[in-house]
């Protein structure tokens, strides 16, 4: 009986685990399905652009630095931020809920509005393209 329960837990755990962890490419595919084809070049422009809509930072690079492979630092708290590019930080763009959460917060903080599905797809494409 106990064995069966353990086996069931293992199976449920594996299913739950695979449901959460995706590859960056799968995350991108999901965004492209909503937006249409993604452009890494447009994504890079978004990453490096200066904006005036947000209250806290004028750009992504304010915290993440000009190099998405580098360790960043929060503009206000100085806390160290892991690199954004999956090539430098393996768990980046592997959890869809986490990706959505940070687009929601950071687009609001930098642009003063939500990002479109196209912008998210472009941004993700750029991050994946960094080698």
């Amino acid at each position: 009986m106990i064995k069966r329960v353990l086996l069931l837990m293992l199976v449920v755990g594996m299913v739950a685990g695979t449901a959460q962890a995706e590859s960056p490419q799968q995350i991108l595919d999901g965004l492209v399905a909503q937006a249409g084809p993604a452009s890494a070049a447009r994504g890079e422009k978004l990453f490096r652009g200066k904006f005036s809509g947000g209250k806290n930072a004028d750009s992504c690079t304010a915290c993440h630095t000009n190099n998405a492979k580098a360790v960043g630092s929060h503009v206000k708290t100085n806390k160290v931020i892991d690199p954004l590019a999956p090539v430098a930080q393996k768990d980046r763009f592997t959890d869809p809920a986490k990706v959505e959460k940070w687009f929601k917060r950071n687009c609001n903080d930098v642009l003063g509005r939500a990002c479109s599905a196209q912008e998210k797809a472009d941004f993700t494409a750029y991050m994946i393209s960094i080698k």
Binding site: K55, N56, K76, A97, K101, K104, R105, N108, D109
Partner: peptide
């Protein structure tokens, strides 16, 4: 949250 969006699910 201190001027930033820290909203949670």
């Amino acid at each position: 949250h201190f001027g930033e969006d820290a909203s949670l699910e």
